[in-house]
Amino acid sequence: MDKTISFTLKVWRQRSPKEKGCFKSYQMKDIPTDTSFLEMLDILNEDLINKGEEPIVFDHDCREGICGMCSLYVNGHPHGPATGATTCQLYMRRFKDGDTITVEPWRSAGFPVIRDLMVDRSAFDKIMQAGGYTSINVGGVPDANAIPISKEKADLAMDAASCIGCGACVAACKNGSAMLFVSAKVSQLALLPQGQVEAARRAKSMLHKMDELGFGNCTNTRACEAECPKCVSISNIARLNREFIAAKLKD
């Protein structure tokens, strides 16, 4: 028989964006430590449904750390206490018997709560639509290495592109700033020749969209970088600052 733990789960319940929310406690009994955090919530929800209560609403999709759909602010950390992992990659073996586990939604003006633990992250889509793409005609598939890109640059671009857009950076930031997300999305293109053509316009319009949607100003606390499930570096923020300032000085 696997090891099991019992603990108290404090979950934020909120019926709609306008209504006031509050914490509700649930006693979890004999949960196997091999259960993932989301499976544990599934167990609780099944129980709630059987009892005729409203299940807890939370976001999830691929459950393998790729899609960026899961969220949850667990015990003071976006995506829970594990580093470099999403909530769906979090397992109950991280917790001890008798613990109280507090689960909250992302809290930020840019991410209003829809219900319970689910927040509206469509602000990120709007920022992407503002310029997170290339609109050049690429034609057919080019020959390999037709456009030489140094290994160093390719690595940096890939590291920036590892951002899954989950919003943990905003959730972690005391200023509710989306700079890590925006900088990763600007960097992944700014580092490559294909992204150069629209680089200045992209940096300006994505940043303006971010400001317009009510995200805060970056104060370099590095909380975003520490909590990012993909360990995206704040050196991307420096690059975005550079790109933006250069674009504005050229105007």
Binding site: G21, N75, G76, R107, A109, G176, G216
Partner: peptide, 9 residues
């Protein structure tokens, strides 16, 4: 920008 409700933990 942080919103009207704060984190408990």
């Amino acid at each position: 920008a942080r919103g009207s409700s704060r984190y408990a933990v």
